[in-house]
Design a protein around this nucleic acid. Structure first.
Lengths: 130, 130
DNA sequence: TATAAGATTTATACTAAATCTAAATATAAA
DNA sequence: TTTATATTTAGATTTAGTATAAATCTTATA
């Protein structure tokens, strides 16, 4: 029974992700902490993000950019990225089971999970017609 | 009307991806070229991969690893990664339209494309029970 | 309380993937 | 040919992240 050891640094990193409205990168977490006057070593932020991901309090997202993003929502879900402004939103609708079954049949894999990155234009950008 | 300018280097890079049975990374393309006695500058391989992707002869895949992989199959499709051996296979079954419509409704985005990374265990690994 | 064991943080060095720069070379156009 | 444009090259640089080892903090126990 591994207890989660939330040190001050880890707590601050966790909260920085939780209270970010988007899905911040490690660099953005650093920046946010600095704004709050909580400056930790570079490695501490990375270590904390890794630890929090390992214990299941955060989820690491690799959306095709160079840097990983972190999500305080850890339930299984997908993401949608706006091609214009770059914002990332949650997609809570799960991958249809029938589709997964079809893919398993076609590929001869046993699928354990899937992650979808949708791309498109968000409502705000569609209005502002950038 | 932009004609595609296939220099010797670009052609060699394209063929290295085409004749690779997997989805090679830039480093793997380099290696394969070296094996063939065709050694180009690091930047040339990257430039070529970029050019070939831009003109639509290759597709860049970001599957959550550090390095991008390249796919000579440029039609819209998904990928499945074996958690055990790391092999990457094509998933040709398209994202169900009804699901995309549901996601658009739920997120208020206009979806232009989607890419799914399935994870699981391939037939070979399932047999060998690693 | 003192002390030792273990975990965490920190600064710094390092690595991997990719891009940038500017000179050199090749190709095409006038 | 001469000039213009594009491509390749070597090497420096950038970015994201990891490794290392000393320093610090916690916890457990005598």
């Amino acid at each position: 029974m591994n207890k989660i050891n939330l040190t001050a640094q880890r707590k601050a990193v966790l909260e920085a992700v939780q209270y970010d409205d988007g899905h911040p990168t490690a660099a953005e977490v650093m920046e946010r902490l600095r704004e709050q006057g909580q400056q930790f070593a570079y490695a501490t932020v990375y270590n904390s993000l890794k630890y929090l991901t390992d214990v299941g309090l955060l989820r690491e997202l690799k959306l095709g950019e160079a840097a990983s993003r972190y999500d305080a929502r850890v339930d299984d879900h997908h993401h949608i990225v706006c091609k214009q402004c770059g914002r990332v939103d949650e997609v809570l609708s799960p991958t249809p089971d029938e589709w997964i079954t079809a893919v398993e049949k076609a590929t001869n894999y046993k699928v354990s999970n899937s992650h979808v990155v949708f791309e498109g234009v968000c409502g705000t950008c569609a209005q502002h017609k950038v």
